[in-house]
């Protein structure tokens, strides 16, 4: 019995274990400590070629956890990439630039300036990075309009006033040199123009996409004009569900997305194929095929430029229509 009375508490104590943590809650150093740069702001490359999948890794270390941002601005394009974070260190884990853009146009081959700013700190820290090769979009490119309009596409352009449905190359270029301008006034209808991109224009009966709708993304760059005539861009993805090599509205599925262009400047729009629904007069409606998203059955993509129905006028630009796999396009 003498042994029991001493051994039992010891056994109980030994059976218990406690999570080994240095302290509870957020670090007081991070919350209230003074700021200083423990390691300077650096980049692992002075010149980068994004076309060869190279990246720039930024680095820095602070005396405390900070809200920080790195803003990279193209010297010629004025393209901007912003990387933000909240950490004590800037490392490969949170500050890698792969040539993508936050505020379009996309970067060109140009000198860039990277500026590190820290919340609550007046000073900023600057680096120079040169680009000698731009990022090449990866995926199934429907068009980037670098070769103009493809004769195998079907186009329809209304004959209204101030119609401008042309591939242009000017100061508005966002990626590469060309983009498609779409503008005009059509008082009797609200369709300004459309382009059908049939799979046959790409050398096959269906587009070469995967079969899992959650993995397929459609992406494009759309420019919003600074005018009150909110353009609408309607994308229609037409499938061949009954294997007739053609889209039949009464027997096949069509998934749609209407984008109201209510912003100013270029914006990258990405759509997950599984999120799309069939629209009838702008409202979700039942489909007529197998009622399943089958991206590998797409036989045609249609892009319609619509005006605001109450105004009849529309103006926008578009570029870089690309399907990507497993993730939205990064440009």
């Amino acid at each position: 019995m003498k042994r029991i009375k001493f051994i039992l508490p010891l056994l109980l104590f030994a059976a218990c274990k406690r999570e080994d943590k240095p302290f509870e809650g957020p670090s007081l150093q991070d919350l209230n400590g003074p700021f200083s740069m423990a390691k300077p702001f650096t980049a692992n490359k002075a010149v980068v070629d994004f076309s060869k999948n190279e990246t720039v890794v930024f680095g820095a270390e602070f005396s405390k956890q900070c809200d920080w941002s790195i803003t990279i601005r193209g010297g010629l394009s004025k393209a901007t990439k912003i990387i933000t974070g909240k950490s004590r260190q800037i490392t490969v884990d949170n500050a890698v630039w792969n040539g993508t853009t936050t505020v379009f146009p996309a970067f060109k081959t140009e000198p860039c300036k990277a500026v590190l700013k820290i919340a609550g700190v007046e000073d900023s820290f600057t680096l120079n990075v040169g680009i000698n090769g731009v990022r090449v979009p990866q995926g199934l490119i429907l068009t980037d309009f670098e070769s103009g309009l493809n004769a195998k596409w079907n186009t329809f352009i209304q004959s209204g006033a101030n119609m401008d449905f042309k591939v242009k190359s000017d100061a508005f270029s966002v990626q590469g040199k060309n983009y498609l301008n779409m503008a005009g006034i059509v008082t009797w209808d609200w369709l300004i123009g459309l382009i059908d991109f049939p799979a046959s224009a790409y050398g096959s009966s269906t587009l070469a996409l995967g079969s899992i709708p959650e993995d397929v993304y459609f992406n494009c760059l759309i420019y919003g004009d600074a005018n009150p005539n909110q353009s609408r861009v309607l994308f229609q993805f037409k499938e061949d569900d009954n294997n007739t090599k053609a889209f039949e509205p009464a027997a096949d599925d069509q998934f749609d997305k209407e984008i109201i262009v209510n912003w100013q400047g270029w914006k990258l729009v990405s759509l997950k194929y599984s999120d799309l629904v069939h629209l009838s007069n702008g409202q979700p409606a039942p489909n007529n095929g197998n009622n399943r998203h089958n991206p590998n059955n797409i036989v045609m993509v249609s892009m319609l430029h619509l005006a605001n129905p109450s105004m009849g006028a529309g103006s926008t630009k578009i570029d870089c229509l690309i399907f990507t796999s497993k993730a939205p396009l990064e440009l």
């Binding site: 240095p22 957020p26 150093q29």
Partner: peptide, 8 residues
């Protein structure tokens, strides 16, 4: 304390 609050 057994463990500090925000600090060791």
């Amino acid at each position: 304390e057994v463990v500090g609050q925000g600090t060791p």
